[in-house]
């Protein structure tokens, strides 16, 4: 039993990172109705930017800020150049285009920073904390990760529920045409949504990098986990993405703990397939009538 609790606690940090990446996917989906498979590519790229800044300045925080700025910029650029023109075309085209962006970003990162895995400096202690005379499978860094996640989620929730901008964003996601008629500046609202998605992804990237290493395709598997979480959460639901994201992290941690970490992708795949087979619209999503 204590072992189970340990595994669950150990999954908190990675769960929060999956939740953030899923959140980025959902934000883009709400803004453009395109699943941005390049989101992890953007996060990988901004994390490399952060690593460069970190090496130059030696400050973890400055690097994080750089990643956030780069993430917002890259988010807006990708959306303007690719996703916005492509969303009026067939769905296949839009999906393929995002994978094109992913391939190009990974290649560009490989060109600039090389293809080898590079270590990302640990800003805080990564050893297990000892509280009440017992060693817990949680490090100071895990707490930082969870803290950042909570701040972001709370901030976004406040933004969406308590501000005019949030109201405009929700209206735009619900129905762009009606929102426009009600005086919402849809195009500006969408741009902010894309920038937000880029920022959330960038933060997730910087947070996950020290626990592993960073290379052009080291986030591929994170894409699978985040997509799983976003879809099970309902793709449309911010609450769903975050809660299912954390849940996914916990499940994967337990699976890795009791068996082997190489099982994690297979389990995620199983969860995704199960969800798509039983409840394709997700737990927090609204069911849509099927045409045929």
């Amino acid at each position: 039993m204590t072992q189970l609790i340990d595994y669950l606690l150990g999954g908190l940090g990675s769960g929060m990172i999956i939740a953030l990446m899923a959140l980025a996917l959902v934000l883009t989906w709400r803004a453009t109705r395109v699943v941005n498979f390049a989101q992890v590519g953007q996060a990988m790229f901004t994390t490399f930017v952060a690593l460069t800044i970190q090496t130059l300045t030696g400050s973890w925080l400055v690097a994080l800020v750089a990643a956030i700025i780069a993430g917002a910029l890259l988010g807006v650029i990708v959306q303007y150049l690719v996703l916005r023109p492509v969303r009026r075309m067939d769905t296949s085209g839009a999906i393929i285009a995002t994978f094109g962006v992913l391939i190009a970003l990974q290649a560009a990162a490989g060109m600039i920073w090389g293809g080898d895995s590079q270590a990302y400096p640990q800003p805080f202690g990564n050893t297990a904390l000892t509280v009440f005379g017992r060693e817990w499978p949680v490090s100071a860094y895990d707490l930082v990760v969870v803290g950042f996640g909570v701040v972001l989620v709370v901030g976004l929730t406040l933004l969406f529920t308590r501000t005019d901008l949030g109201l405009a964003m929700r209206a735009t996601a619900f129905n762009p045409e009606v929102a426009r008629l009600s005086g919402v500046r849809v195009s500006r609202t969408l741009t902010i949504g894309w920038a937000l998605a880029g920022i959330v992804g960038a933060v997730a990237g910087v947070l996950v990098a020290p626990t592993s290493a960073i290379s052009p395709n080291s986030f591929d598997i994170l894409l699978v986990f985040a997509f799983t979480a976003a879809v099970i959460g309902g793709l449309d639901s911010l609450v769903g993405a975050v809660s299912v994201g954390i849940f996914t992290g916990l499940v994967l941690s337990v699976v890795s703990g009791y068996s082997d970490s190489s099982n994690a992708p297979v389990v995620a795949l199983f969860l995704l397939a199960l969800n798509l087979a039983l409840k394709p619209e997700g737990i927090f999503g609204h069911s849509k009538a099927r045409a045929v």
Binding site: G10, S14, Q106, S117, S212, D220, S256, S261, A264
Partner: peptide
Amino acid sequence: PTGQDELPTGQDPLASDGSGDLLT
């Protein structure tokens, strides 16, 4: 495309990175 300049099997150790601290 995602091979970058790694060798073929370079992909999977990295693939585990996403799970972050799941990995010991």
